[in-house]
Simulated assay, not measured.
Amino acid sequence: MTTIPCVIASVLMAVAELRWSYWTCAFIANFLNPIGADGIFTVSNLLITSMFPPKTQGVAGGVFNTISQTGKSVGMALTALVANEVTRNYRSVDKPSSAALLVGYRASFWFCVALVSVSLCISALGLRRIGKMGKKSD
């Protein structure tokens, strides 16, 4: 499951401390996240396009790409909204702004953990009977 590296990356960033070195969590998270995200996109694109006849596979890939990009945009907007709201609410308690930003970032990373975990559950349930790709069926 290619979503597991994304979950690990989000958890690492959610628990990271300011006093820790970049190599402790942030590097590992930045290494794992693209592996998971690119793997998800490639596997999903191959799976979607293989379900259509060769004549329409290009259109299916284009529609998948459009939906994927729209989903990324909505996800980033929601994550920014979570971070901004948590930061704004924490600031109202007269805390330093850097501490408020850190709390907002942590909340956004925990939100990412939740979203990717839901994606992991959906893909585990939805793909459990998919079989082997490229296997010749007679």
Rank of each mutant, 00 (worst) to 15 (best):
M1Q: 13
T2V: 14
T3F: 06
S10M: 15
S10G: 06
V11K: 08
L12F: 13
V15S: 06
L18Y: 12
L18N: 14
L18S: 14
S21W: 02
S21I: 04
W23H: 10
W23P: 01
W23C: 06
A26I: 09
F27M: 15
F27R: 00
A29Y: 06
F31Y: 05
F31I: 07
L32G: 06
L32M: 01
I35N: 01
D38S: 14
I40F: 14
F41H: 12
F41C: 05
T42F: 08
L47C: 08
L47H: 13
I48H: 02
I48W: 05
K55S: 14
K55W: 00
T56C: 07
G58Y: 09
V59N: 12
G61I: 07
V63F: 01
F64W: 07
I67G: 03
T70Y: 01
G71Y: 02
S73T: 09
G75V: 04
G75N: 06
M76T: 11
L78G: 09
L78H: 04
V82R: 07
N84L: 13
N84K: 10
N84S: 15
E85H: 11
N89F: 08
N89C: 10
Y90W: 11
V93M: 12
V93H: 12
V93F: 03
P96I: 00
A99R: 07
A99K: 05
L101F: 09
V103H: 08
Y105D: 05
Y105K: 12
A107K: 03
A107F: 02
S108I: 10
F111G: 04
C112D: 05
V113Q: 00
V118T: 02
I122R: 05
S123V: 11
S123P: 02
A124G: 05
L127A: 05
G131M: 02
K132A: 12
K135I: 04
K135T: 10
K136E: 11
S137F: 04
D138R: 07
